[in-house]
Design a protein around this nucleic acid. Sequence first.
DNA 1: AAAGCTATTGGGGGTTTCCCGTATTTTTGA
DNA 2: TCAAAAATACGGGAAACCCCCAATAGCTTT
Lengths: 233, 233
Amino acid sequence: MEIVDLSTLPDSEARYTEFLKQVCEKHGIDHAAYAGMNPAAGTVAGYVTYGDDWKSHYQDQGLIMLDPTLHMTKRSIAPVDWSRLERSDNFQRVFRDAHDFGLSDQGVTIPVRGPYGDIGLLSATRDCSREEWKKQLSHVIGDLQSMAVHIHDTVVSSDEVTSSLYHPTLSTRESEILQWVAAGKSQQDIGDILSISHRTVEVHLRSSREKLNALTTPQAVGRAIGIGLISPG
Amino acid sequence: MEIVDLSTLPDSEARYTEFLKQVCEKHGIDHAAYAGMNPAAGTVAGYVTYGDDWKSHYQDQGLIMLDPTLHMTKRSIAPVDWSRLERSDNFQRVFRDAHDFGLSDQGVTIPVRGPYGDIGLLSATRDCSREEWKKQLSHVIGDLQSMAVHIHDTVVSSDEVTSSLYHPTLSTRESEILQWVAAGKSQQDIGDILSISHRTVEVHLRSSREKLNALTTPQAVGRAIGIGLISPG
DNA sequence: AAAGCTATTGGGGGTTTCCCGTATTTTTGA
DNA sequence: TCAAAAATACGGGAAACCCCCAATAGCTTT
C-alpha cells in the first residue's frame, strides 16, 4: 500500500479533499468525507467530496447537529457500517434528504482518536448492491483504516487553530481537585483534604472548566476522563 | 481480509494470545503483543506471544515502567516504527536485554484509543533485513491496524461484560438525562429539552446516583462514563 | 390482585455550587 | 530583565442543586 503523503501537497484546505478523491478512485468509492473534531475545544473541521449543493443543504439544515454518522460513530472503537444506524430517526431524516441529492445511504465510518480527546471520522459511501458493498468493504477496510489514521494525524498536527487549543494542560491543583470531585467529594471536603479554603477549590474547578471548555463541573469531569486526565472515582 | 472473531473463541485469557499467534502466522511476523491500558488509573493488561523467560525477565526488571514501545507510542496517533525510538535511552536498555532472549529490536506499534481514555497498543516484531521489513510493513500495515482495533474493541467490551454483572442498569430516562448532564446542561435545561419538570429531572438524577452508588452527580457522570453507560459530552 | 419498578410533578428548606470580586506568588514570554 | 500571564489563595451573595416528604399513573411480575 502506498500512502500519499499529505504533508507534501500544497498547503491549503484543497489538499485534503484532493486526498479524499484519491482514496475514492483507488478503492472504487463514490464519495469520501472526513470530519475532525475536538470536543474539549468545541471545534469541528470537515472535508468532503460531495457536491456543493449537498454541502450547502447540509449546512443550512443544520444536519451536522443530528447526523448519526458523526454522533453515533464517534463513540465507537471499530468502524461502523451505516446499516447499523438505519433504525435511528436522525438517520432516516438525514438520508431521506440525501437521496434527493443522489447520495447513497450505504457506507461506513471509521473513527480515529488522538491522545487529547480529538476525534477523526473518515466516511466512505457507495451506491451498489448490498452484497457487492460487503465484499468491497472487506477488501479495503484495512486501507481505509490506514487512510483515516493518516489524514487525522496530518490534520491535527498541521491545523494551527486546533493545535493552539489542543493541549488542555491542567495544573497540579486543578487535576488533583478534579480527581477528588470525580471521587464524589464536595468542595468543602476537598478544601479540608488539601487544607485550603473551599473558595480556592472552586476557583481551580472554574479554571478547569474553562480549559476543558465545559459548561458545568460534571461535563468537565466527563471530558477529563475521556481525555485520560483523571479516572472515574 | 477475514477477521477472526475473538468473541467466538473459548472464553479465557488464552484466546487473546491465540489470536496474536494467528496474526503472526498470517503476516509472517515473529512475535506480536497487545497491551491495553487505562493511563489515568494506571492499569495495564497485556497479552504476548513471547516466551515465558522473556516475560518473567520483563516483569522482574520492571521494564514495563520504561519500555518506550509503550510510553512513546501511546502519545501517537499513527503507527510508530521502532526505528523512530532508537535514540531513546530506555529503548537501548530494554532491547539490549531483549537481544539476549533472541528478540529483535525491529518492529512497529499501533495505538488505538477508545472513547473512555482507554488505549490499546498492538506491537509486531520480526528479525530480518531493514529493507525486507519496510516492504513487509507496507503490505500488512492496513491489516495490522484492523487487527489492533478488533482486539482492543473486544478486550474493552468483554471487560464490560464481565463487570456488567456488578454494575447497575439505568433506565432510559436516567441514562438520557445523565447524558445531557455530561453535555453540560442544567436540570432546568434538561427539563425544557425533554419537556418535563426540572423536579422530575432531579428525581431521575437522584436514582441514577443511587444506582451508581455515587455521592454526587459529577461522580455519577464519571462512573457512568467509566462503565460505558454514557459518553463524554 | 397486590407488589414492584418507572415516570411524572410538586413543596419546603438546607446545602452546595457558581459568579462576582481582591490579592499574592510563581511562571512565562517579549 | 521586566511586564504579562498563570497559579494559588480567600470572601460575599445569588443561583442551582440536593434531600425529605407526598401523590398519581402505567406497566410488569408474582
